[in-house]
């Protein structure tokens, strides 16, 4: 490929932005027209908050604070991760319906279909986080830090969700059908979220597992969010480097995942085909 003239680069960039926004709008229009989708993606996290609060709430002793408060960051991260993965289902559907073929025959930016989808899913995640927070407050969850710190915590969650969305996008493009996307898109999230500090303190696990868990991107995110909300209790992180620098590690993980899976997904999109 030859070097592009600067004006060509800038028009390309403005096209990429335009195309992504057009597609983001497309997905936002869908929301009120498929209300069930939004309702269920909100009901699920509410259900999790309530289940964990009342079923597990008293089961585990976390030094220095209630288990409910300790749990909230874990449930936030889990929800954000699952929500990101649902990006793939939407893409697999577009593929099955031949819409990806149509988009690929248009002179639009190669990244736009994916960016439009991940961006609109990010907006949906914002909404879900708001609903969950209200629900959490109702069952006794409290933050103990400044507004700035709390905002930072939510931003970390959104960034992480955005990263998961790109993994989902890639999976959505490699699976052969919507049905497969519905299982393959989620199954890996169970070990990912449970082999983390989201629900139980890392100290309760066998030591060989602790290293894995400490390096799990979910763990760093949960740890950083707990700190940002003041919900850590006395869950010691000493000895686990990624957890001692949780915020930085979480951001790092997210960026690496966005770039890595962004490249993989866009590359896949270039040759993606409905059959």
């Amino acid at each position: 490929m030859t070097l592009l003239a600067p004006e060509k680069v800038s028009s390309r960039l403005s096209h990429a932005v335009n195309d992504s926004l057009v597609l983001t709008m497309r997905h936002l229009r869908h929301i009120p027209r498929i209300p069930e989708l939004l309702v269920f993606s909100i009901v699920q996290p509410i259900m999790f908050v309530l289940l964990f609060a009342f079923v597990f709430g008293g089961a585990i002793q976390v030094a220095g604070g209630g288990y409910r408060s300790y749990l909230m960051a874990g449930i936030f991260a889990q929800t954000v991760a699952f929500n990101g993965a649902s990006t793939g289902v939407g893409l697999a559907e577009d593929m099955a319906k031949g819409l990806i073929d149509r988009f690929r025959s248009l002179p639009m930016a190669r990244s736009a279909v994916l960016a439009g989808r991940t961006l609109s899913d990010l907006l949906r995640t914002v909404l879900i986080l708001i609903v969950m927070s209200v629900c959490g407050l109702a069952v006794g969850w409290r933050t103990h830090t400044s507004a700035l710190s709390i905002t930072g915590g939510f931003l970390l969650l959104l960034l992480f969700g955005f990263a998961m969305s790109w993994i989902g996008a890639w999976i959505g493009l490699i699976v052969p059908s919507t049905e497969v996307a519905n299982t393959a898109g989620f199954i890996w999230l169970f070990p990912l979220t449970f082999m983390s500090n989201a629900f139980v303190p890392i100290q309760t696990m066998p030591s060989w597992l602790q290293t894995v868990v400490a390096w799990n991107p979910i763990s760093a995110t949960v740890q950083a969010v707990r700190t940002a909300f003041g919900n850590t209790g006395v869950a010691p992180t000493r000895g686990f480097w990624p957890l001692e620098h949780a915020a930085v590690v979480s951001v790092g993980w997210s960026i690496v995942l966005i770039v890595g899976f962004g490249v993989l997904a866009v590359r896949r999109y270039r040759t993606a085909s409905s059959r």
């Binding site: 497309r26 229009r29 027209r33 319906k97 031949g98 073929d101 149509r102 025959s105």
Partner: peptide
């Protein structure tokens, strides 16, 4: 070019 494929490719919710 314009393309109309063998199966209609439209967004059902628009």
């Amino acid at each position: 070019i314009g393309l109309s494929g063998q199966y209609a490719a439209i967004d059902e919710y628009l």
